[in-house]
């Protein structure tokens, strides 16, 4: 009987330790998520400013000498 109580007590200690370890790990991951979210937002801003339409248009027309075809110059290709 006393052995059972003893083993049980050790078991309780062990599981609560395991729980705490997992909780701490979860907290760590949540912090990581927040950090990644912040990084994502900043990258998003960078992407937006790099892919901004007027910037792309400027680079396309000035640097790459591209131009938009007029509607009458468009060729329509139909996929069978």
């Amino acid at each position: 009987m006393s052995m059972v109580v003893l083993i049980n007590a050790v078991g309780v200690v062990y599981t609560s330790h395991a729980t705490r370890k997992l909780t701490s790990q979860m907290d760590h991951l949540l912090q990581e998520r927040d950090r990644l979210d912040i990084e994502w937002r900043n990258l998003l801003l960078e992407e937006q400013s790099k892919s901004e339409h007027s910037r792309v248009t400027r680079i396309a027309t000035k640097d790459l000498k591209m131009m938009r075809p007029l509607p009458k110059e468009e060729v329509v290709i139909r996929l069978p």
Binding site: D34, D37, I38, R41, N42, L44, L45, Q48
Partner: peptide, 22 residues
């Protein structure tokens, strides 16, 4: 307490019109 960022506003193709940064 966790900080909640204000929601994003995007156009119909998912391009950002307003982004909150902490």
């Amino acid at each position: 307490s966790n900080q909640v960022q204000r929601g994003l506003i995007t156009d119909r193709n998912g391009e950002m019109l307003a982004v909150s940064v902490p």
